[in-house]
C-alpha cells in the first residue's frame, strides 16, 4: 500500500495537469477552471490568491480530492486521484491530508478537546485524548479544553481547527481562507501559528487566500484569474 502512495519520481507531492472543471447551471455550462497545471514539492508552502469567484476554492477541492475535475489529472502522493473511487480518495485523505476551513467547521456539540479528539478517535488512536490535549496546548488553548465552539472567539475557534488539522499528522495541509473570518490582528496570529506548526511538523501547505499578508509568508504564490493559474509577479512576493 505504501508503495502505491509514494511521491512522484521527480519529487512532487502534488501534481495537477490540464485541470478543467465545468458545472451545469440552469442548462448553461459554466467553466470554473481551465487548463490548470501545477506542481507542489514536499515541504513547500504555496498560496493560491485571486479574487472571489476566480475558482480558488474549487481548485483546492480538486487538489484535495474532495471533488473530481471534468478533465485533467491530479496526482497526490503518487496516486492519480482522478482514477480513484470516492472511497479510495477518502482513504488517501485519511493518510496524507489535513484541512483548515474559513468557517472553522467545528462541531458545535463537541468541546474544543473533543473536536480535536474526533479524527483521532475515528482512526482508533489509543492516546487520542492525550494527544488532543497536547495539540491544544501547542496552539495556546490549554485552558479552553472544555469550552464549546460558541463559547470561543473566532480566533480561538480557528486555533482549535488548526490543532485538529495537525492531529492526524498530515503530509499536506489544505487551508481555505483560514483568516477570512477573522480581523487583521487575529488573522496575523493565526498565520503565525499555521506557519510555525507547518515548519515544525514538516508539512506541505497549500492555502487559498486573498490575504496578501498571509500569501507573502508562503514560499510560492500562484494567482487564479477567471479559472486560469499563473505565477504572481516577483515584485509582489518580494
Amino acid at each position: 500500500m505504501n508503495e502505491r502512495y509514494s511521491d512522484t519520481p521527480d519529487g512532487a507531492l502534488l501534481q495537477a495537469s490540464e485541470l478543467t472543471h465545468q458545472v451545469v447551471v440552469e442548462q448553461h455550462t459554466l467553466t470554473i477552471l481551465q487548463g490548470v497545471n501545477l506542481e507542489i514539492k514536499a515541504g513547500e508552502s504555496v498560496a493560491i490568491v485571486g479574487r472571489s469567484g476566480s475558482g480558488k476554492t474549487t481548485l483546492l477541492g480538486l487538489l484535495a480530492g474532495l471533488d473530481v475535475p471534468s478533465e485533467g489529472t491530479v496526482i497526490l502522493a503518487g496516486s492519480e486521484l482522478t482514477r480513484l473511487s470516492e472511497d479510495e480518495r477518502a482513504t488517501l485523505r485519511s493518510r496524507y491530508v489535513g484541512f483548515v476551513f474559513q468557517s472553522f467547521q467545528l462541531l458545535p456539540a463537541l468541546t474544543a478537546l473533543e473536536n480535536v479528539q474526533l479524527p483521532l478517535e475515528l482512526r482508533g488512536d489509543k492516546d487520542a485524548e492525550k494527544r488532543a490535549r497536547q495539540l491544544l496546548e501547542r496552539v495556546g488553548l490549554g485552558d479552553r479544553l472544555s469550552h464549546r465552539p460558541r463559547q470561543l472567539s473566532g480566533g480561538e475557534q480557528q486555533r482549535v481547527a488548526i490543532a485538529r488539522a495537525f492531529a492526524s499528522d498530515p503530509r499536506i495541509l489544505f487551508a481555505d481562507e483560514p483568516t477570512g473570518n477573522l480581523d487583521t490582528e487575529t488573522g496575523a496570529e493565526i498565520v503565525e501559528l499555521l506557519m510555525t506548526l507547518n515548519r515544525e511538523e514538516g508539512t506541505t501547505l497549500v492555502l487559498v487566500t486573498h490575504d496578501t499578508q498571509l500569501a507573502a509568508r508562503c514560499s510560492r504564490q500562484l494567482r487564479m484569474e477567471a479559472g486560469r493559474l499563473g505565477a504572481v509577479p516577483v515584485e509582489v512576493s518580494a
Binding site: E86, D87, V97, L118, L122
Partner: peptide
C-alpha cells in the same frame, strides 16, 4: 468526516 478520510 469525509475530509477526515472516512469512506461511505
Amino acid at each position: 468526516l469525509k475530509t477526515f478520510g472516512l469512506t461511505q
